[in-house]
Design a protein around this nucleic acid. Structure first.
Lengths: 206, 206
DNA sequence: TTTTAGATTGAACAAACGTTCAATATAAGG
DNA sequence: CCTTATATTGAACGTTTGTTCAATCTAAAA
C-alpha cells in the first residue's frame, strides 16, 4: 500500500506500473494483484485509505474552532487547509505522497466518483459553513470560490517549483499556510460580496 | 495535430496512445510517428503550437490596457485570464482541448521544462507587472499569489463539474470570468498587504 | 502433529504499447 | 513523360503492460 501510494503519486494512474510498485515493496508482481485486486481497485483503496483520517482532522479542527466562538471565513478556511498542508509537511514521506495523490485525483475527471465518495462530503460541509456566513450569496458562488481555493491548495504541492521559478528563492510549505488562508479568504469574501446591493453587504469581519 | 491535441487533453500523456490519435485522425499509426517524431516530441509540438498565440493574446490585452491609462491589479489579472477562458469557451473544440492540455502540462512536474519554455516568460511578465503595483511586497509573495491564481483558472476547466456538485446547478465558463478575476485580485491584494506595517500599506484601488 | 487458510512465488498469458522499415501512392519539378 | 521527394500504408519488431494460475512457503488452529 505504501509503495503503491508513492508510485501513484509520482507517476499518476496510467504512468504507474504494478511492477514498479512491487519492486518498491520488495515483493512479486502477483502479490500486488492478490492484495489490491485489479489496478483500478488498488488505486481506489490507496486513495480511500487515508481519506477518513484527513476528513476527520478537518472536521475536528472545525468543531474545535466552533466551540471557541462564532466562526469567521478565515477560521473556516484554515480548518480546511491546515490539516492537509501540515500532514503533507510534517506527516512523513507517506503523507507527503498521499497529498500529491490527492492532487492527482482532483485534477482528473476520471476520478469524479472517487472524489465524490472520499472528499465531497467533507467539502460540502465546509461549503455549507461558508454559505451560512453569506446568507444572501448564491450557493453556486460559494462553491466556485471553494473550488478555486482547493485548487490553490493543491498548487502548493504540485507547483511550488513554479513559485520559486517566477519568484526569487525557495519556499517552505508551512510558511505558505497563512498566506494561502489569506488569499482564499479574501478571494471568497470578494466574490461573495460582488454585485450585492451595497446596503445588503454584511459588515462582518473576515 | 488536432487529433493529438484532443487525445492528449483527454487522457494525459501516459494515457494517450498513438493508435487512438491515429484512429481519430483517420490515418495509420506510422504516419503519426513520421510527422510528430517520438511520442514525447509530438507532445512538445502540440503544446508549443498554440502557446505563442495564447501568449500574444495575453500580452496584447496587457498592452491595450496599458495604453488606456494606469494599470490596476484587476486589469492585469483580467488581461491574463480572459484570453485563456474566452478561447476555451468560444474558440471551438480545438482551443477547448488545448486549454485542458495546458492544465495537464501545468500539473505534472514532468513538464517543468516545457512550462518554463512555453508559459513562464509571459507569466514572469505579468508577475513583474503586479510586483510594480506592490513595490514593498516581496517578489516571492507576488509569485505565490500568481501561481494560486493560475491554479484557480485551470480549475475552471478541470473541475467545473465539482463546482456544480458542491453548489446547486450548472455553470457557464464565461459567467465565471468576472468572478475569477475578482477572486484572484482580492486574494493577491490581501497577501501583498499582509504583515506590511499599516503606514506602509498603499491605498491604491484594486 | 496434522490440517488448513492465507501469504508468496515464479512463470506464463494475451493485449497493447512505441517504434521501425520496406513498399506503395501521390503530386510537384524538370 | 519521367523523376524525385514526400505522404502514406501495412506489417512487423521487441517491450511492457495488467492479469491469471498452479505451486510453494508460513503460521496459526485443531
Amino acid at each position: 500500500m505504501d509503495a503503491a501510494e508513492q508510485v501513484f503519486a509520482a507517476h499518476g494512474f496510467e504512468g504507474a506500473s504494478l511492477r514498479e510498485i512491487a519492486a518498491r515493496a520488495g515483493v512479486q508482481v502477483a502479490l500486488v494483484n492478490h492484495h489490491g485486486g485489479a489496478k483500478e481497485d488498488l488505486f481506489w483503496r490507496v486513495v480511500a485509505r487515508r481519506a477518513d483520517e484527513l476528513s476527520a482532522a478537518r472536521l475536528d479542527a472545525l468543531a474545535a474552532r466552533k466551540a471557541r466562538g462564532a466562526l469567521t471565513l478565515t477560521a473556516v478556511m484554515e480548518c480546511f487547509l491546515a490539516p492537509y498542508l501540515s500532514k503533507a509537511e510534517t506527516g512523513g514521506a507517506q503523507w507527503f505522497a498521499y497529498a500529491r495523490l490527492v492532487a492527482v485525483v482532483s485534477a482528473d475527471p476520471r476520478w469524479r466518483d472517487l472524489c465524490a465518495h472520499c472528499f465531497d462530503p467533507t467539502a460540502g460541509r465546509f461549503v455549507a459553513e461558508i454559505a451560512a456566513l453569506y446568507p444572501t450569496c448564491p450557493r453556486q458562488t460559494v462553491s466556485a470560490g471553494f473550488v478555486y481555493s482547493v485548487s490553490a491548495m493543491l498548487a502548493l504541492l504540485t507547483s511550488r517549483w513554479r513559485i520559486s521559478a517566477l519568484g526569487d528563492g525557495a519556499s517552505d510549505t508551512c510558511e505558505h499556510l497563512d498566506e494561502l488562508v489569506t488569499f482564499c479568504s479574501a478571494g471568497i469574501d470578494a466574490i461573495a460580496r460582488r454585485q450585492l446591493p451595497p446596503f445588503a453587504a454584511p459588515a462582518q469581519p473576515l
